[in-house]
């Protein structure tokens, strides 16, 4: 279980998170939604210590991880993986080497053994044929799939997806949605997905939390979001150009 309790975060004079509290139950797929720049990515990066809150607490499976140091976060990051928005594969390595890296570093595997295990992970996302390509040589959608394979190498209990379908064509986006769904149903992985892709949100989410002006506007089921009479939520869910949110 992940608990964010009253998280505040500002960059300079720009208040991004102004008291955000969310709880994610084990085995759930939670979508965090909101307009671009609303602080969705900022919030999830707190969970693995890439950002530190100005105040508030973060509790992972009952352990308070808010003030762990960099070393202290390494065990957390092994059970809580993250797929970055731009995939962020290491571009000096082939796809296979990208996936092998965590295996070699953490399981002390030899080259051959790690290559075999990494190939199996790539098979899960149907990328084993391109294993020896470099990231620059393949498209965005394929890179995203490899990034997911890399995040799954250490068999994490929690996976954070930062805008996994943004910038992908509809077919590639649907593949990623399927992957998230099967992660939850087959492996019981808890997923936190940052997104503003309406189609994915309503096909995959168990629960949705919307961040608006640094606070949680609504935290509920997709049904509750569809039927909400809050103007802000109505505007976002229906993708309307006019409404209370227009800047």
């Amino acid at each position: 279980m992940i608990e964010f309790i009253d998280i505040h975060k500002r960059f300079g004079s720009n208040v991004v998170l102004d008291g955000v509290s969310i709880t994610v139950d084990t085995g759930q797929v939670l979508y965090i939604i909101g307009a671009s720049g609303a602080g969705k990515s900022v919030l999830v990066k707190h969970l693995i210590g890439l950002l530190r809150p100005d105040s508030g607490r973060i509790i992972l499976d009952g352990e308070d991880i808010t003030w762990l140091d960099e070393e202290g976060f390494y065990p957390i990051r092994r059970k809580c993986a993250m797929v970055f928005q731009n995939s962020t594969l290491f571009d000096s390595m082939t796809l296979l080497e990208n996936v092998m890296l965590p295996l070699r570093k953490h399981h002390k595997m030899g080259r051959k053994e790690a290559a075999k295990a990494a190939r199996a992970k790539l098979e899960l996302v149907n990328m084993d044929r391109d294993a020896d390509q470099y990231p620059a040589a393949i498209g965005d959608g394929l890179r995203k799939r490899v990034a997911i394979a890399r995040a799954l190498t250490l068999d994490p209990q929690f996976v954070i997806f930062d805008e996994p379908t943004t910038g992908l064509d509809p077919m590639a986006a649907a593949t990623v949605d399927d992957l998230i769904r099967s992660l939850r149903s087959d492996a019981g992985v808890t997923c936190v997905v940052v997104s503003h892709d309406l189609r994915s949100i309503f096909t995959v989410a168990d629960r949705i939390a919307m961040i608006y002006k640094g606070k949680i506007r609504l935290d509920g089921t997709p049904e509750q979001f569809r039927n909400s009479d809050d103007g802000v939520i109505h505007q976002f869910v229906n993708g309307l150009p006019e409404g209370p949110m227009s800047v």
Partner: peptide, 9 residues
Amino acid sequence: DALRALAID
């Protein structure tokens, strides 16, 4: 950051 997220210093 991706390295750090993979628990690699």
